[in-house]
Each structure stands twice: as C-alpha cells, then as structure tokens.
Computed example of a mutant assay.
Amino acid sequence: MSGLLPFANFVFLGIVIVLLIRSGLGVRARVLAVLTVGLALFLNLSWAMADQFTGNGIDESIFFHLEMGMKGAAYGEFRNQFVLGALAIIAVGAVSVAVYKSISTKDEKRPKRARGMAGLVLGFFVLLTNPGALDLFRLAGSMSGSSLIVPEDFLVVHDLPRNQNPKNFVILYAEQYERAFLDESVFPGLSPNLNDLEDSSLSFTEIRQVSGTSWSIASMTAGFCGVPLVGAAMGNSMSGLDHFLPRANCIGDLLSSEGYRLEHVIGASLDFAGWGKLFENHGFASVRGVAALRGEVPADTPPSPWGLHDEYVLEIAAERITELSQAEQPFGFVVNTLDTHHPRGHAGPG
C-alpha cells in the first residue's frame, strides 16, 4: 500500500477532530462521533504498528501469529515497537475522551451543529478509507478461503517418477536477503561467492509473490507443500500445531517415501510459528533448532536474539552435509539463516 494513503487518512482524521471540537451534537450523535474517531485512530495506529513488523501493513502473518502464538520469537528485537504500541493505546483513549468532552449537547446554534454533523460524516469516510480497515476488508475474503482460486491445471502429486540415480540436494533459505545485497555498488564485497554462483547458475528475477506466502513459515510451506498459508490451510488443517497441514502431500513426504534422508537446521526455536512441526510432520528424519545446536558449539558462544548466529549454524550444517555425502543413502538438507531478519539484522561476532 502506498505510504501516501495512510498519511492522507491521518490528516483527514485530524480535520475530523478539529470539526468535532466545540461542536454541537445530540447525545447519540456525540457517542457515535467519539466511537468513529476512536476506532479510526486505533486502526491507523494498528496499521502503523503492523507495518513495522510486516512491511506490508496488516497482512495474513499478523493473524497467523495471533492465532498460533509467539513462543520462541526474538521479543527484544521489537522492544521499541512494543513500547510505542502501549503508548499508542493510551493515546487513543486520551484523544477519545478529550473529543467526547469537547462536544456540546446543549449548544443549539446551527453553525455548531452543522460543523459537528460535517465532522461525523467525514469521520465515516475516514473510517471506511482507513488503511487498517482496507487491509481487514481485503483479508476477510482470503482468510475465509472464498477468494482462493485453484488453477485448472493444479496437480496433486502422490508419487514421484523413479530415478535410478537420485541426486542429493542442499537448500539454503536466506532470511529476508534481497537482491540489493548483491549490488556491488551498494554493498561492495558483501557476497562475492553468491554473485559468482549466480553468474554460473540458473537465476530467477521478477518473481511475484502470492497471498499467504509473505512471512517465513508461510514461504516455507508454499515452497515445500505447494499451498499458501491462508484460510482453511492456516486454521483447521493445522489442528493447533499438533499437526501441520496433515492432509498436504509435501516434497518431504514424497522424497522420504523414495528413500531420501531429509534433515533441517535453524538457529531459532522450533516452537516458533510451528516451524518444527512443518518438517517433522512431512518426511524429515532430523529437525534441529537452537536447543539441539547449542550442544555442538562452545558454551561461551555468544547468542543472537533468535538463538544462534548464522556463522555457527552454517558450520554445523557443512559438517553434517559432509557426513551425509559419504553415505550411500540419498539425502536432502535444508538450512535457514536468521541474521538478516527485519527490522535491523544482527551482525555475528565473526
């Protein structure tokens, strides 16, 4: 959403408050005006707070984490946002009370009543065009599943074609790592190996993101299971995280049935967002988070806000990949990084 709309909506909300101050309205209109102002202000601030976490206003990830909890999250990473959020809630209450007290129910002068009614009408318009309200309207359909369109050529795969020479594979998911980091003119020497790898490999650009794939666990679900994490997929089918999409047939399910050993490591808690369940329930023989990986690094290893810095996780992964490559069983290994996590990132001690 363009940054101009939230700013314009907030300006118009200020005009509404100015019109209502010392205006004249009946008791019911007075209450309605205050509720409109309070709700509009709350939605504006909620949108701004959500945008600090998502970069996309109020999206599916907000409701996902509200439903599934935030256990294992790096709360310290967002402490400033939490403090501002608490202050914003207090501000909403204070402004609403001030507007309520400023509206007169006894003044019968026509100009003041007209100004109050103008403020009330404009307030409804501000409420309906509020960025928070618009996001909620947009999500209402997608989260119910009514707006999900299944392509005619959507293919449900139950078996893989037999391959006499199965290939091993390693997947590295770089958290919020974007193409800007590859630009030598902006970040000289930051990622020379990735730049060289892209020059000699197949690389995709101009990729569009679909609804329900914009946050970490959702993107992993889309990549491994071929479904966005919205609507029914986000709620009923997850059974409160005891089972993560039990009806989905994911890449891990297919490859494990073909004799692959699948492993995953991440330097964060497996409890966060049901991360561990996604892999454990879909064919991965080993899923290790920070609790397991801490035993493989020195006791004095400095932690990151999420758990373990990427440099240690990558060292552990490299050793394990070497071990797996010496066995006869085909394998797949998935690694997730975290140090580039929004909003500030975390430089490792190395």
Rank of each mutant, 00 (worst) to 15 (best):
N336L: 10
G93S: 04
F64N: 01
H65I: 01
R79W: 06
G274W: 03
C225T: 06
E328F: 00
Q52M: 04
A91P: 03
V97M: 08
G132S: 10
F7P: 05
P343R: 14
R162Q: 15
P343S: 08
I149A: 08
S214F: 07
H65Q: 13
T129A: 14
P166Y: 02
I15P: 00
D196T: 12
G267D: 02
D153E: 13
D107P: 05
G345T: 06
G132R: 07
G223F: 13
L43T: 06
N130M: 11
R208G: 05
V230I: 15
E184N: 10
V265T: 11
S144D: 04
A268E: 07
F244M: 07
P349S: 14
E184Y: 08
R288K: 15
L84T: 15
E296W: 00
E206K: 13
P228M: 08
S200Y: 05
E67S: 10
P166L: 07
P192R: 04
P192F: 09
V27T: 12
H264P: 03
E319G: 15
F64G: 00
H309D: 09
P343W: 02
I316M: 06
H243G: 11
L136Q: 04
S104Y: 00
S147F: 07
L194D: 04
I207N: 03
G332C: 07
V334E: 03
A118W: 06
V150T: 15
H264Y: 13
V227W: 02
S256E: 11
S61D: 03
G289R: 01
A98M: 12
D135P: 08
V287N: 11
D107A: 02
A114M: 11
I103A: 09
G14L: 12
G252S: 07
